[in-house]
Nucleic acid binder design. Structure first.
Lengths: 252, 252
DNA sequence: GGGCGGAAAATTGCATTCATTTTTTGAGAG
DNA sequence: CTCTCAAAAAATGAATGCAATTTTCCGCCC
Protein backbone atom coordinates (compact mmCIF):
# COMPACT_ATOMS: atom_id res chain seq x y z
CA UNK A 1 0.00 0.00 0.00
CA UNK A 2 1.59 3.22 -1.10
CA UNK A 3 -0.94 5.88 -0.34
CA UNK A 4 -1.05 7.00 -3.88
CA UNK A 5 -4.52 6.97 -5.36
CA UNK A 6 -5.25 10.34 -3.92
CA UNK A 7 -5.43 13.80 -5.24
CA UNK A 8 -2.46 15.41 -3.67
CA UNK A 9 -3.61 17.82 -0.99
CA UNK A 10 -3.40 20.80 -3.28
CA UNK A 11 -2.62 24.08 -1.63
CA UNK A 12 0.50 22.87 0.06
CA UNK A 13 2.66 25.68 -1.05
CA UNK A 14 2.71 26.96 2.51
CA UNK A 15 4.47 24.22 4.35
CA UNK A 16 6.53 22.78 1.61
CA UNK A 17 8.42 26.03 1.37
CA UNK A 18 9.42 26.20 5.01
CA UNK A 19 10.12 22.56 4.85
CA UNK A 20 13.82 23.01 4.49
CA UNK A 21 14.16 22.20 8.15
CA UNK A 22 11.60 19.40 8.28
CA UNK A 23 11.75 17.72 11.66
CA UNK A 24 11.54 13.97 11.87
CA UNK A 25 8.98 14.11 14.67
CA UNK A 26 9.64 10.63 16.01
CA UNK A 27 11.89 8.45 13.94
CA UNK A 28 9.79 5.42 14.72
CA UNK A 29 6.73 7.11 13.32
CA UNK A 30 7.92 8.48 10.05
CA UNK A 31 8.56 5.10 8.54
CA UNK A 32 5.70 2.66 8.22
CA UNK A 33 2.50 3.69 6.55
CA UNK A 34 0.98 4.84 9.77
CA UNK A 35 3.59 7.53 10.12
CA UNK A 36 3.14 8.56 6.53
CA UNK A 37 -0.57 8.98 6.97
CA UNK A 38 -0.04 10.78 10.24
CA UNK A 39 2.23 13.33 8.63
CA UNK A 40 -0.12 13.79 5.72
CA UNK A 41 -3.16 14.24 7.89
CA UNK A 42 -1.31 16.63 10.14
CA UNK A 43 -0.29 18.74 7.19
CA UNK A 44 -3.79 18.56 5.82
CA UNK A 45 -5.15 20.06 9.01
CA UNK A 46 -2.32 22.45 9.73
CA UNK A 47 -2.65 23.91 6.30
CA UNK A 48 -6.18 24.85 7.08
CA UNK A 49 -8.10 22.55 4.78
CA UNK A 50 -10.51 22.11 7.63
CA UNK A 51 -12.15 25.10 9.24
CA UNK A 52 -11.26 25.78 12.85
CA UNK A 53 -13.76 24.18 15.16
CA UNK A 54 -15.16 22.12 12.33
CA UNK A 55 -15.92 18.46 12.51
CA UNK A 56 -13.30 16.11 11.10
CA UNK A 57 -15.15 13.90 8.65
CA UNK A 58 -13.76 10.39 8.88
CA UNK A 59 -15.55 9.08 5.84
CA UNK A 60 -14.37 11.89 3.66
CA UNK A 61 -10.77 11.69 4.79
CA UNK A 62 -10.81 7.93 4.29
CA UNK A 63 -11.59 8.27 0.65
CA UNK A 64 -9.37 11.30 0.31
CA UNK A 65 -6.38 9.29 1.49
CA UNK A 66 -7.59 6.02 0.10
CA UNK A 67 -7.48 4.10 3.35
CA UNK A 68 -9.92 2.53 5.74
CA UNK A 69 -11.10 3.98 8.99
CA UNK A 70 -8.78 2.04 11.26
CA UNK A 71 -5.50 3.75 10.38
CA UNK A 72 -7.26 7.07 10.07
CA UNK A 73 -8.68 6.81 13.55
CA UNK A 74 -5.29 5.86 14.90
CA UNK A 75 -3.87 8.99 13.35
CA UNK A 76 -6.68 11.08 14.79
CA UNK A 77 -5.93 9.81 18.27
CA UNK A 78 -2.32 10.85 17.87
CA UNK A 79 -3.23 14.27 16.53
CA UNK A 80 -5.52 14.71 19.51
CA UNK A 81 -2.66 13.91 21.86
CA UNK A 82 -0.64 16.53 20.03
CA UNK A 83 -3.37 19.04 20.70
CA UNK A 84 -4.21 19.72 17.09
CA UNK A 85 -7.71 18.33 17.28
CA UNK A 86 -9.98 17.34 20.10
CA UNK A 87 -11.98 14.17 20.50
CA UNK A 88 -15.53 14.37 21.74
CA UNK A 89 -16.92 11.09 23.01
CA UNK A 90 -19.26 9.63 20.44
CA UNK A 91 -19.19 12.86 18.55
CA UNK A 92 -16.01 12.59 16.62
CA UNK A 93 -13.06 14.86 16.23
CA UNK A 94 -13.04 18.60 15.82
CA UNK A 95 -10.27 20.90 14.73
CA UNK A 96 -9.09 22.56 17.86
CA UNK A 97 -10.17 26.15 18.13
CA UNK A 98 -7.60 28.36 19.77
CA UNK A 99 -8.94 30.96 22.11
CA UNK A 100 -6.94 34.08 22.87
CA UNK A 101 -5.65 32.68 26.19
CA UNK A 102 -4.59 29.40 24.69
CA UNK A 103 -2.77 31.29 22.01
CA UNK A 104 -0.87 33.25 24.62
CA UNK A 105 -0.05 30.05 26.48
CA UNK A 106 1.23 28.38 23.36
CA UNK A 107 3.40 31.35 22.52
CA UNK A 108 4.85 31.29 25.99
CA UNK A 109 5.72 27.63 25.65
CA UNK A 110 7.34 28.33 22.31
CA UNK A 111 9.28 31.07 24.03
CA UNK A 112 10.35 28.68 26.74
CA UNK A 113 11.48 26.13 24.21
CA UNK A 114 13.40 28.68 22.20
CA UNK A 115 14.95 29.94 25.40
CA UNK A 116 16.05 26.42 26.19
CA UNK A 117 17.32 25.92 22.67
CA UNK A 118 19.38 29.08 22.93
CA UNK A 119 20.88 28.03 26.22
CA UNK A 120 21.81 24.62 24.93
CA UNK A 121 23.05 26.02 21.66
CA UNK A 122 25.52 28.17 23.57
CA UNK A 123 26.97 25.01 25.03
CA UNK A 124 27.02 22.87 21.97
CA UNK A 125 27.13 24.94 18.83
CA UNK A 126 30.04 24.42 16.50
CA UNK A 127 31.96 27.33 15.06
CA UNK A 128 30.66 26.39 11.62
CA UNK A 129 27.05 26.42 12.73
CA UNK A 130 27.63 29.74 14.45
CA UNK A 131 29.18 31.16 11.32
CA UNK A 132 26.18 30.06 9.35
CA UNK A 133 23.83 31.79 11.75
CA UNK A 134 25.95 34.89 11.58
CA UNK A 135 25.74 34.79 7.82
CA UNK A 136 21.98 34.40 7.95
CA UNK A 137 21.80 37.27 10.39
CA UNK A 138 23.63 39.60 8.04
CA UNK A 139 21.54 38.45 5.16
CA UNK A 140 18.48 39.18 7.23
CA UNK A 141 19.79 42.59 8.09
CA UNK A 142 20.36 43.26 4.45
CA UNK A 143 16.78 42.19 3.72
CA UNK A 144 15.64 44.50 6.46
CA UNK A 145 17.47 47.43 4.96
CA UNK A 146 15.99 46.65 1.58
CA UNK A 147 12.54 46.32 3.16
CA UNK A 148 12.42 42.86 1.64
CA UNK A 149 9.81 41.27 3.86
CA UNK A 150 9.93 37.87 2.26
CA UNK A 151 13.68 37.57 2.48
CA UNK A 152 13.58 38.82 6.03
CA UNK A 153 11.04 36.20 7.05
CA UNK A 154 12.98 33.41 5.43
CA UNK A 155 16.21 34.34 7.20
CA UNK A 156 14.45 34.88 10.47
CA UNK A 157 12.84 31.47 10.29
CA UNK A 158 16.13 29.89 9.31
CA UNK A 159 17.96 31.47 12.22
CA UNK A 160 15.50 30.23 14.79
CA UNK A 161 15.58 26.79 13.25
CA UNK A 162 19.35 26.73 13.30
CA UNK A 163 19.39 27.59 16.95
CA UNK A 164 17.05 24.71 17.71
CA UNK A 165 19.19 22.43 15.58
CA UNK A 166 22.31 23.61 17.31
CA UNK A 167 20.82 22.67 20.66
CA UNK A 168 21.21 19.13 19.42
CA UNK A 169 18.43 17.75 21.55
CA UNK A 170 15.98 15.40 19.90
CA UNK A 171 13.10 15.66 22.38
CA UNK A 172 13.40 19.42 22.23
CA UNK A 173 13.27 19.38 18.45
CA UNK A 174 10.18 17.21 18.55
CA UNK A 175 8.35 19.35 21.07
CA UNK A 176 9.33 22.48 19.23
CA UNK A 177 8.01 21.09 15.97
CA UNK A 178 4.81 20.08 17.67
CA UNK A 179 4.10 23.49 19.12
CA UNK A 180 5.17 25.24 15.97
CA UNK A 181 2.67 23.09 14.09
CA UNK A 182 -0.10 24.03 16.42
CA UNK A 183 0.63 27.68 15.96
CA UNK A 184 0.98 27.42 12.25
CA UNK A 185 -2.76 27.46 11.79
CA UNK A 186 -2.72 30.96 13.18
CA UNK A 187 -2.28 33.75 10.77
CA UNK A 188 -0.89 36.89 12.17
CA UNK A 189 -1.49 39.78 9.93
CA UNK A 190 1.11 41.39 12.11
CA UNK A 191 2.52 42.26 8.81
CA UNK A 192 5.69 44.05 9.63
CA UNK A 193 5.03 46.17 6.64
CA UNK A 194 2.28 47.84 8.60
CA UNK A 195 4.29 47.88 11.77
CA UNK A 196 7.64 49.47 11.17
CA UNK A 197 8.30 49.97 14.86
CA UNK A 198 8.03 46.29 15.58
CA UNK A 199 10.20 45.46 12.64
CA UNK A 200 13.00 47.65 13.88
CA UNK A 201 12.60 46.33 17.38
CA UNK A 202 12.72 42.73 16.16
CA UNK A 203 15.87 43.55 14.23
CA UNK A 204 17.48 45.01 17.34
CA UNK A 205 16.51 41.95 19.33
CA UNK A 206 18.17 39.80 16.73
CA UNK A 207 21.33 41.81 17.16
CA UNK A 208 21.22 40.97 20.84
CA UNK A 209 20.55 37.33 20.04
CA UNK A 210 23.56 37.09 17.79
CA UNK A 211 25.71 38.90 20.29
CA UNK A 212 24.75 36.63 23.16
CA UNK A 213 25.27 33.58 21.00
CA UNK A 214 28.65 34.84 19.91
CA UNK A 215 29.65 35.19 23.53
CA UNK A 216 28.08 31.81 24.30
CA UNK A 217 26.14 33.56 27.04
CA UNK A 218 23.48 30.92 27.59
CA UNK A 219 21.42 32.55 30.31
CA UNK A 220 21.38 35.84 28.50
CA UNK A 221 20.44 34.33 25.19
CA UNK A 222 17.75 32.36 26.92
CA UNK A 223 16.28 35.54 28.32
CA UNK A 224 16.47 37.45 25.09
CA UNK A 225 14.82 34.70 23.12
CA UNK A 226 11.95 34.47 25.54
CA UNK A 227 11.38 38.19 25.40
CA UNK A 228 11.73 38.10 21.65
CA UNK A 229 8.89 35.61 21.38
CA UNK A 230 6.81 37.60 23.84
CA UNK A 231 7.17 40.69 21.72
CA UNK A 232 6.41 38.76 18.61
CA UNK A 233 3.17 37.64 20.17
CA UNK A 234 2.29 41.10 21.37
CA UNK A 235 2.83 42.46 17.90
CA UNK A 236 0.54 39.83 16.49
CA UNK A 237 -2.06 40.10 19.20
CA UNK A 238 -5.70 40.16 18.44
CA UNK A 239 -5.38 38.47 15.10
CA UNK A 240 -7.43 35.39 14.29
CA UNK A 241 -7.04 32.27 12.21
CA UNK A 242 -7.60 32.27 8.49
CA UNK A 243 -8.98 29.33 6.47
CA UNK A 244 -7.23 29.85 3.13
CA UNK A 245 -3.79 28.20 3.26
CA UNK A 246 -2.10 30.63 0.99
CA UNK A 247 0.83 32.45 2.52
CA UNK A 248 2.65 30.62 5.25
CA UNK A 249 4.96 33.24 6.65
CA UNK A 250 4.78 34.20 10.28
CA UNK A 251 5.75 37.52 11.71
CA UNK A 252 8.66 37.67 14.05
CA UNK B 1 -17.11 -2.06 28.09
CA UNK B 2 -15.98 -1.02 31.53
CA UNK B 3 -12.32 -1.84 31.77
CA UNK B 4 -12.64 -3.54 35.07
CA UNK B 5 -11.19 -7.02 35.31
CA UNK B 6 -7.76 -5.68 36.06
CA UNK B 7 -5.72 -4.96 39.11
CA UNK B 8 -5.76 -1.22 39.46
CA UNK B 9 -2.33 0.25 38.77
CA UNK B 10 -1.63 2.15 41.97
CA UNK B 11 1.25 4.31 43.07
CA UNK B 12 0.36 7.39 41.11
CA UNK B 13 0.21 9.61 44.14
CA UNK B 14 2.35 12.19 42.41
CA UNK B 15 0.03 13.55 39.77
CA UNK B 16 -3.42 12.57 40.91
CA UNK B 17 -3.16 14.09 44.35
CA UNK B 18 -2.29 17.55 43.15
CA UNK B 19 -5.52 17.67 41.25
CA UNK B 20 -6.74 20.69 43.14
CA UNK B 21 -5.79 22.77 40.15
CA UNK B 22 -6.87 20.22 37.56
CA UNK B 23 -4.31 18.23 35.58
CA UNK B 24 -6.50 17.17 32.72
CA UNK B 25 -3.65 16.40 30.39
CA UNK B 26 -5.94 16.82 27.41
CA UNK B 27 -9.58 17.21 28.33
CA UNK B 28 -10.66 15.46 25.19
CA UNK B 29 -8.67 12.38 26.09
CA UNK B 30 -9.53 11.73 29.69
CA UNK B 31 -13.17 11.15 29.01
CA UNK B 32 -14.23 8.36 26.69
CA UNK B 33 -12.98 4.84 27.13
CA UNK B 34 -10.06 5.47 24.86
CA UNK B 35 -8.64 8.00 27.25
CA UNK B 36 -9.20 5.67 30.15
CA UNK B 37 -7.31 2.88 28.46
CA UNK B 38 -4.59 5.26 27.40
CA UNK B 39 -3.99 6.41 30.94
CA UNK B 40 -4.04 2.88 32.25
CA UNK B 41 -1.66 1.58 29.65
CA UNK B 42 0.66 4.50 30.18
CA UNK B 43 0.76 3.81 33.89
CA UNK B 44 1.24 0.15 33.24
CA UNK B 45 4.36 0.89 31.24
CA UNK B 46 5.65 3.79 33.29
CA UNK B 47 5.48 1.71 36.40
CA UNK B 48 7.83 -0.75 34.84
CA UNK B 49 5.60 -3.77 34.34
CA UNK B 50 7.36 -4.20 31.03
CA UNK B 51 11.10 -4.48 30.86
CA UNK B 52 12.93 -1.68 29.10
CA UNK B 53 13.51 -2.56 25.46
CA UNK B 54 11.07 -5.44 25.69
CA UNK B 55 8.40 -6.17 23.16
CA UNK B 56 4.93 -4.93 24.00
CA UNK B 57 2.71 -7.98 23.67
CA UNK B 58 -0.59 -6.87 22.15
CA UNK B 59 -2.39 -10.13 22.73
CA UNK B 60 -1.46 -10.23 26.38
CA UNK B 61 -2.40 -6.63 27.06
CA UNK B 62 -5.68 -7.15 25.28
CA UNK B 63 -6.74 -9.83 27.68
CA UNK B 64 -5.18 -8.00 30.57
CA UNK B 65 -7.38 -4.99 29.92
CA UNK B 66 -10.26 -7.00 28.52
CA UNK B 67 -10.47 -5.19 25.21
CA UNK B 68 -9.80 -5.96 21.58
CA UNK B 69 -6.75 -5.02 19.62
CA UNK B 70 -8.22 -1.96 17.94
CA UNK B 71 -8.38 0.36 20.95
CA UNK B 72 -5.15 -1.06 22.27
CA UNK B 73 -3.34 -0.28 19.08
CA UNK B 74 -4.73 3.22 19.07
CA UNK B 75 -3.34 3.70 22.53
CA UNK B 76 0.02 2.32 21.47
CA UNK B 77 0.23 4.81 18.65
CA UNK B 78 -0.36 7.64 21.08
CA UNK B 79 2.20 6.34 23.54
CA UNK B 80 4.67 6.13 20.70
CA UNK B 81 4.02 9.76 19.83
CA UNK B 82 4.66 10.57 23.46
CA UNK B 83 7.99 8.83 23.21
CA UNK B 84 7.27 6.16 25.78
CA UNK B 85 7.47 3.30 23.34
CA UNK B 86 8.71 2.95 19.80
CA UNK B 87 7.00 1.34 16.86
CA UNK B 88 9.01 -0.86 14.56
CA UNK B 89 7.39 -1.44 11.20
CA UNK B 90 5.86 -4.90 11.15
CA UNK B 91 7.64 -5.75 14.33
CA UNK B 92 5.40 -4.25 16.92
CA UNK B 93 6.05 -1.92 19.80
CA UNK B 94 8.95 -1.93 22.18
CA UNK B 95 9.38 -0.12 25.45
CA UNK B 96 11.70 2.71 24.69
CA UNK B 97 15.17 2.18 26.03
CA UNK B 98 16.78 5.35 27.24
CA UNK B 99 20.43 5.69 26.43
CA UNK B 100 22.63 7.95 28.48
CA UNK B 101 22.48 10.78 25.92
CA UNK B 102 18.72 10.64 25.64
CA UNK B 103 18.48 10.76 29.38
CA UNK B 104 20.58 13.89 29.43
CA UNK B 105 18.45 15.42 26.70
CA UNK B 106 15.25 14.65 28.53
CA UNK B 107 16.60 16.16 31.72
CA UNK B 108 17.56 19.29 29.86
CA UNK B 109 14.08 19.62 28.44
CA UNK B 110 12.62 19.13 31.91
CA UNK B 111 14.98 21.84 33.05
CA UNK B 112 13.82 24.11 30.27
CA UNK B 113 10.19 23.50 31.14
CA UNK B 114 10.76 24.13 34.82
CA UNK B 115 12.67 27.25 33.92
CA UNK B 116 9.72 28.41 31.89
CA UNK B 117 7.32 27.48 34.65
CA UNK B 118 9.34 29.52 37.12
CA UNK B 119 9.40 32.52 34.85
CA UNK B 120 5.67 32.40 34.28
CA UNK B 121 4.97 31.69 37.93
CA UNK B 122 6.73 34.91 38.84
CA UNK B 123 4.24 36.75 36.68
CA UNK B 124 1.10 34.96 37.68
CA UNK B 125 1.44 33.43 41.11
CA UNK B 126 -1.04 34.52 43.73
CA UNK B 127 0.08 35.48 47.22
CA UNK B 128 -1.75 32.44 48.57
CA UNK B 129 0.01 30.06 46.20
CA UNK B 130 3.31 31.66 47.08
CA UNK B 131 2.59 31.30 50.78
CA UNK B 132 1.84 27.64 50.25
CA UNK B 133 5.15 27.13 48.48
CA UNK B 134 6.93 28.98 51.24
CA UNK B 135 5.27 26.70 53.77
CA UNK B 136 6.31 23.64 51.80
CA UNK B 137 9.82 24.99 51.59
CA UNK B 138 10.09 25.34 55.34
CA UNK B 139 8.59 21.94 55.85
CA UNK B 140 11.17 20.60 53.43
CA UNK B 141 13.92 22.34 55.30
CA UNK B 142 12.68 20.84 58.50
CA UNK B 143 12.73 17.40 56.89
CA UNK B 144 16.24 18.11 55.71
CA UNK B 145 17.38 18.95 59.22
CA UNK B 146 15.77 15.80 60.51
CA UNK B 147 17.39 13.80 57.71
CA UNK B 148 13.89 12.66 56.79
CA UNK B 149 14.48 11.66 53.21
CA UNK B 150 10.91 10.66 52.50
CA UNK B 151 9.44 13.87 53.83
CA UNK B 152 12.07 15.85 51.96
CA UNK B 153 11.23 14.16 48.67
CA UNK B 154 7.53 14.72 49.13
CA UNK B 155 7.94 18.43 49.81
CA UNK B 156 10.43 18.83 47.01
CA UNK B 157 8.10 17.20 44.55
CA UNK B 158 5.20 19.28 45.79
CA UNK B 159 7.14 22.52 45.41
CA UNK B 160 8.10 21.83 41.83
CA UNK B 161 4.56 20.84 41.01
CA UNK B 162 3.20 23.99 42.60
CA UNK B 163 5.49 26.11 40.53
CA UNK B 164 4.23 24.44 37.39
CA UNK B 165 0.67 24.91 38.55
CA UNK B 166 1.34 28.54 39.35
CA UNK B 167 2.54 29.09 35.81
CA UNK B 168 -1.09 28.52 34.88
CA UNK B 169 -0.34 27.33 31.39
CA UNK B 170 -2.16 24.26 30.18
CA UNK B 171 0.15 23.25 27.33
CA UNK B 172 3.10 23.61 29.65
CA UNK B 173 1.44 21.40 32.25
CA UNK B 174 0.75 18.78 29.64
CA UNK B 175 4.26 18.78 28.25
CA UNK B 176 5.71 18.74 31.71
CA UNK B 177 3.59 15.76 32.68
CA UNK B 178 4.60 14.01 29.50
CA UNK B 179 8.32 14.40 30.08
CA UNK B 180 8.01 13.63 33.75
CA UNK B 181 6.27 10.41 32.80
CA UNK B 182 9.05 9.46 30.43
CA UNK B 183 11.61 10.00 33.14
CA UNK B 184 9.63 8.21 35.77
CA UNK B 185 10.79 4.87 34.49
CA UNK B 186 14.27 5.89 35.51
CA UNK B 187 15.27 5.17 39.02
CA UNK B 188 18.08 7.23 40.31
CA UNK B 189 19.68 5.66 43.26
CA UNK B 190 21.04 9.13 43.69
CA UNK B 191 19.99 8.46 47.17
CA UNK B 192 20.74 11.67 48.91
CA UNK B 193 21.46 9.56 51.92
CA UNK B 194 24.64 8.46 50.26
CA UNK B 195 25.34 11.86 48.88
CA UNK B 196 25.22 14.39 51.64
CA UNK B 197 27.00 17.00 49.59
CA UNK B 198 24.36 16.97 46.93
CA UNK B 199 21.63 17.10 49.52
CA UNK B 200 23.01 20.23 51.07
CA UNK B 201 23.59 21.76 47.68
CA UNK B 202 20.04 20.99 46.60
CA UNK B 203 18.76 22.58 49.77
CA UNK B 204 20.77 25.72 49.10
CA UNK B 205 19.44 25.86 45.58
CA UNK B 206 15.95 25.67 46.94
CA UNK B 207 16.71 28.64 49.13
CA UNK B 208 17.65 30.54 46.01
CA UNK B 209 14.53 29.32 44.28
CA UNK B 210 12.28 30.56 47.03
CA UNK B 211 14.13 33.84 47.20
CA UNK B 212 13.83 34.50 43.50
CA UNK B 213 10.19 33.56 43.57
CA UNK B 214 9.57 35.85 46.50
CA UNK B 215 11.09 38.72 44.56
CA UNK B 216 9.18 37.62 41.47
CA UNK B 217 12.50 37.64 39.67
CA UNK B 218 11.49 35.61 36.64
CA UNK B 219 14.74 35.50 34.73
CA UNK B 220 16.68 34.65 37.82
CA UNK B 221 14.31 31.94 38.91
CA UNK B 222 14.38 30.56 35.41
CA UNK B 223 18.13 30.30 35.56
CA UNK B 224 18.24 28.75 38.98
CA UNK B 225 15.66 26.13 38.12
CA UNK B 226 17.53 25.10 35.03
CA UNK B 227 20.77 24.77 36.94
CA UNK B 228 18.94 22.95 39.70
CA UNK B 229 17.74 20.30 37.26
CA UNK B 230 21.17 20.06 35.73
CA UNK B 231 22.71 19.37 39.10
CA UNK B 232 20.00 16.88 39.89
CA UNK B 233 20.87 15.01 36.77
CA UNK B 234 24.58 15.12 37.46
CA UNK B 235 24.01 13.71 40.90
CA UNK B 236 21.97 10.89 39.45
CA UNK B 237 24.24 10.22 36.53
CA UNK B 238 25.11 6.75 35.48
CA UNK B 239 22.13 5.12 37.09
CA UNK B 240 19.89 2.77 35.16
CA UNK B 241 16.24 1.82 35.06
CA UNK B 242 14.69 -0.62 37.49
CA UNK B 243 11.85 -3.05 36.71
CA UNK B 244 10.08 -3.38 40.09
CA UNK B 245 7.38 -0.69 40.38
CA UNK B 246 7.65 -0.27 44.12
CA UNK B 247 8.70 3.13 45.31
CA UNK B 248 7.74 6.06 43.10
CA UNK B 249 9.84 8.87 44.46
CA UNK B 250 12.49 10.55 42.38
CA UNK B 251 15.60 12.16 43.66
CA UNK B 252 16.00 15.88 43.39
C1' DG C 1 -44.71 30.42 10.55
C1' DG C 2 -42.11 28.34 14.23
C1' DG C 3 -40.92 24.81 17.07
C1' DC C 4 -41.67 19.40 18.50
C1' DG C 5 -41.27 14.53 18.32
C1' DG C 6 -39.68 10.56 16.41
C1' DA C 7 -38.02 7.59 12.88
C1' DA C 8 -34.42 7.16 9.28
C1' DA C 9 -29.81 7.94 8.13
C1' DA C 10 -25.31 8.74 9.23
C1' DT C 11 -21.51 8.39 12.46
C1' DT C 12 -18.93 6.59 16.07
C1' DG C 13 -16.53 2.97 18.82
C1' DC C 14 -15.09 -1.42 19.11
C1' DA C 15 -14.78 -6.38 17.66
C1' DT C 16 -13.70 -9.43 14.28
C1' DT C 17 -11.63 -10.98 10.07
C1' DC C 18 -8.15 -11.22 6.47
C1' DA C 19 -3.77 -10.72 4.04
C1' DT C 20 1.32 -10.11 5.04
C1' DT C 21 5.16 -10.26 7.41
C1' DT C 22 8.00 -11.91 10.97
C1' DT C 23 9.39 -15.38 14.16
C1' DT C 24 9.77 -19.95 15.56
C1' DT C 25 10.50 -24.66 14.81
C1' DG C 26 12.36 -28.73 13.04
C1' DA C 27 14.38 -31.73 9.73
C1' DG C 28 18.35 -32.52 7.13
C1' DA C 29 23.07 -31.50 5.41
C1' DG C 30 27.72 -30.72 6.39
C1' DC D 1 26.98 -30.96 17.06
C1' DT D 2 26.07 -26.87 14.43
C1' DC D 3 24.36 -24.52 10.62
C1' DT D 4 20.95 -23.83 6.94
C1' DC D 5 16.70 -23.46 5.09
C1' DA D 6 11.87 -24.23 4.62
C1' DA D 7 7.40 -24.80 6.56
C1' DA D 8 4.39 -23.92 10.50
C1' DA D 9 2.95 -20.78 13.87
C1' DA D 10 2.32 -16.37 15.58
C1' DA D 11 2.06 -11.52 15.26
C1' DT D 12 1.25 -7.30 12.81
C1' DG D 13 -1.31 -3.90 9.83
C1' DA D 14 -5.35 -2.80 7.82
C1' DA D 15 -10.36 -3.69 6.20
C1' DT D 16 -14.77 -4.89 7.25
C1' DG D 17 -18.80 -5.80 10.23
C1' DC D 18 -21.91 -4.64 13.91
C1' DA D 19 -24.13 -2.57 17.97
C1' DA D 20 -24.85 1.92 20.01
C1' DT D 21 -25.11 6.76 19.84
C1' DT D 22 -25.84 10.94 17.51
C1' DT D 23 -27.48 13.81 13.84
C1' DT D 24 -30.68 14.79 10.31
C1' DC D 25 -34.99 15.11 8.34
C1' DC D 26 -39.89 15.36 7.92
C1' DG D 27 -44.56 15.23 9.29
C1' DC D 28 -47.21 17.18 12.98
C1' DC D 29 -48.95 20.31 16.47
C1' DC D 30 -49.37 24.83 18.43
Amino acid sequence: MVLDPVTEPEADAGLAAIDGARFPAFPSLVKSLHGELLARLRDYIVEGNLAAGARVPERMLCEHFGISRTPLREALKVLASEGLIELLPNRGARVRQLGAEELVDLFDVMGGLEALAGRLACEKITPEAYAEIERLHHEMYSSYMRRDLHGYFACNQAIHDRIVQAADNEPLRTSYANFAGRLRRVRYSANLDENRDRWGEAMREHEEILDALRRRAGSELSDILFRHLRNKRRAAEGRETAPPPDDASAAS
